[in-house]
């Protein structure tokens, strides 16, 4: 049994714009799964469905064998265990870095302030931002903000971490400091699902790459196979364009 089982998931916006047209995908524990594909293929929507930010119209999603989609599911409880990091960081601008990280552990998990702070400082030290604990997010660079956002999600000790194009809003020279954290997390065995346009990175870190197109998984396999020997015609065309753009 896979940690996350996605079975024939369908989703449309307003009942008219189909986004996911029957996605089936397994994420094993300690796996890093990369979702690649052109814009609008449903990568972000799929991630948002996994932690219940979007409701799905059909199919089901299971976490540890327990159905977490559909009516009657405690979505607040689900989101406690499934962390997500967004493309645009979405830090809370009215809170300091430290409060951004400790807010949820204190208010949602009921940790004591001291306990949450200790854990937050530990995490901040790991990303070498412990000096910035008292700063407000607008004083940080994009890369630093995104690192804080990752730490904010980690402070909830998630079972799975979803990363939604976390480097797309960053200046090129800031990308690597964020990707380094993802590498670290991988080496610790964190289960992650990434939607990404960083093909080189996907090739390096993923256990499995899924090519999404038109709301369907067109091809999936180990990165070595997908990137050097894509079998699906659309995957080939997509990768060809990426190579022509000098991004692989």
């Amino acid at each position: 049994m896979a940690l996350v089982e996605i079975r024939d998931v369908r989703k449309s916006y307003g009942g008219v714009v189909p986004v996911l047209n029957g996605i089936t995908l397994d994420v094993e524990e300690h796996q890093v799964v990369c979702l690649i594909g052109p814009s609008g293929c449903g990568k972000s929507t799929l991630l948002r469905c996994i932690n219940g930010l979007e409701t799905i119209d059909g199919g089901e999603i299971r976490l540890h064998g327990d159905r977490v989609s559909g009516p009657g599911v405690d979505q607040d409880a689900l989101r406690r265990d499934v962390g997500i990091v967004f493309q645009s960081f979405n830090l809370f601008p009215h809170m300091s870095v430290l409060d951004n990280i400790t807010a949820a552990p204190v208010k949602v998990l009921g940790q004591s302030k001291a306990e949450a702070k200790e854990r937050a400082m530990e995490l901040l030290a790991r990303i070498r931002l412990d000096q910035k604990a008292g700063e407000f997010p607008d004083r940080l660079s994009g890369g630093q903000q995104q690192r804080v956002a990752i730490v904010r999600a980690l402070a909830m000790d998630p079972i799975v971490l979803l990363l939604d194009e976390i480097t797309s809003a960053l200046d090129p020279e800031l990308v690597s400091e964020v990707l380094d954290i993802v590498r670290d997390l991988r080496s610790e065995g964190m289960t992650m699902v990434l939607a990404t346009h960083e093909m080189g990175f996907a090739r390096e870190v993923s256990s499995k790459v899924c090519f999404l197109y038109g709301g369907v998984v067109h091809e999936e396999g180990p990165p070595s196979q997908i990137f050097s020997d894509p079998r699906d015609e659309r995957t080939r065309a997509f990768l060809q364009r990426i190579i022509e753009a000098g991004r692989l």
Binding site: Q75, D76, G83, F86, N90, A104, V108
Partner: peptide, 21 residues
Amino acid sequence: WSQTAAARSLGFSHTQTLRFV
């Protein structure tokens, strides 16, 4: 709305999201 999404994704309830974020 991305602020709401971020808060909800951390497990905040509707009321907590309003109150803290």
